[in-house]
């Protein structure tokens, strides 16, 4: 998680639950393409950079 941003804040920004953000962060849930794109846009990066390999949100 980016510094200074809580899971709850990010969840609210993405219109998902905090538990969903937590699951993505822990690698237990793979987000849909629209959510992955929204997350990448939010953090001003690419989907590849966010989700490639072991690097999660």
């Amino acid at each position: 998680m980016a510094a200074g941003l809580s899971q709850g804040e990010l969840a609210a920004a993405m219109s998902v639950s905090r538990q969903t953000i937590n699951s993505i962060e822990k690698g237990r849930y793979t987000p849909s393409l629209p959510l992955a794109l929204a997350l990448a846009r939010y953090f001003e990066t690419t989907v590849e950079e966010m989700f490639d390999g072991d690097s999660h949100v």
């Binding site: 219109s15 998902v16 639950s17 538990q19 969903t20 699951s23 849930y29 987000p31 849909s32 959510l35």
Partner: peptide, 16 residues
């Protein structure tokens, strides 16, 4: 409770 919200369909996101 996310589980209760999900079971009642009140707070379902894509994961739920």
């Amino acid at each position: 409770s996310e589980t209760l919200r999900g079971l009642s369909a009140g707070g379902r996101d894509e994961r739920f």
